[in-house]
């Protein structure tokens, strides 16, 4: 069942287009990573999904309704981001209590255990917390609300390494215990890739890739071997990056080899080395490039 659906969604601020005819749909219960470089519209997409802002054009459906001004979407979703703020008249303890009054699936005991684990003080105020602590506190609310659609926008901003690891582990454990649709955005793919089932990769204002994280990884492969042997295989292929170490070359190409071709490569002493999802992401978003070596080769040749 589809929970979130974007059809030709465009969002503009004045003359600046942030999302351009974006299309995708998120299935129920899938933990999806919204990945993209800084400023590609990840946050905009998330704010539209929970109804905080409105699409300029196109059709947005969450639980089959337009999220903007929908009380149903608001009650069944939560967006944890930098802009999540609470009255400075409320203590952290008050805020947890208020969250419990609002969200029907609120897990009070979990919230309290996380609150204690991360060493928060009941009488502190959200505005007085450090950046990392504020992120952690907001994340606790996001986890404990158990909303059918739970969205985290760069949730670990400012957190130290230990807190980041703890948060992602908590997220995974809670997701396993209470399966629900979760979106997590990050520009550090390597930090979240193992957690994700699907990746929605945003680039140039649109969805460049949407599918299983492992599929993204397997889109590319590194060929390592003698340069003269490799060159015969890659003559008509798009080279994403290449690196030359002595007589050996390391060439990143699209993984479109048939099994026959693969065994042929093996016999020629050329290794096919899988790339990390992060490398694939970089390859996909930087497009065709000769790598840093070509920058230098280019200047001497011209």
């Amino acid at each position: 069942m589809t929970v979130i659906e974007f059809n030709d969604v465009t969002k503009t601020y004045g003359r600046r287009t942030v999302l351009d005819k974006m299309n995708f749909s998120i299935r129920q219960g899938v933990l999806t990573g919204i990945i993209g470089r800084n400023g590609v519209g990840k946050s905009t997409l998330m704010k539209i999904a929970v109804g905080h802002i409105q699409a300029t054009s196109g059709d947005v459906r969450v639980f089959s309704v337009n999220p903007f001004n929908s009380l149903k979407v608001s009650a069944n979703s939560i967006l944890v981001d930098d802009a999540m703020s609470f009255s400075d008249k409320l203590t952290l303890k008050d805020i947890l209590q208020e969250a419990g009054r609002f969200y029907p699936n609120w897990d009070g005991p979990l919230a309290q255990r996380l609150f204690d684990y991360f060493g928060f003080h009941s009488n502190a105020r959200q505005v007085d917390l450090s950046k990392g602590k504020k992120s952690t506190f907001n994340a606790i609310i996001g986890l404990a609300s158990h909303c059918p659609v739970t969205i985290f926008d760069e949730p670990t901003t400012g957190m130290d390494t230990v807190a980041r690891k703890d948060f992602y582990r908590a997220l995974l454990k809670d997701y396993i215990a209470h399966p629900r649709t979760i979106l997590v955005s990050s520009h550090h793919l390597e930090e979240v890739e193992d957690l994700l089932e699907d990746i929605l990769l945003i680039h140039n204002k649109t969805a460049l890739f949407h599918g299983p994280a492992t599929d993204l990884q397997e889109m590319f492969v590194n060929l390592i071997g003698k340069e003269e042997k490799i060159s015969t295989f890659i003559a008509d292929r798009e080279i994403i990056s290449s690196q030359i170490n002595g007589s050996y070359s390391e060439i990143l190409v699209k993984n479109t080899f048939t099994s026959d071709e693969k065994s042929h490569l093996h016999t020629q002493g050329i290794q096919l080395v899988p790339v990390s999802a992060d490398d694939a992401y970089v390859a996909l978003t930087t497009g065709k490039k000769g790598g840093i070596d070509h920058v230098f080769n280019g200047t001497t040749a011209d």
Partner: peptide
């Protein structure tokens, strides 16, 4: 798949694969 997911902090769907 859920035990594996917890054990290695990976997505259950990946463990299922």
């Amino acid at each position: 798949q859920y035990q594996l997911a917890e054990l290695f902090t990976i997505n259950p769907a990946t463990a299922g694969k």
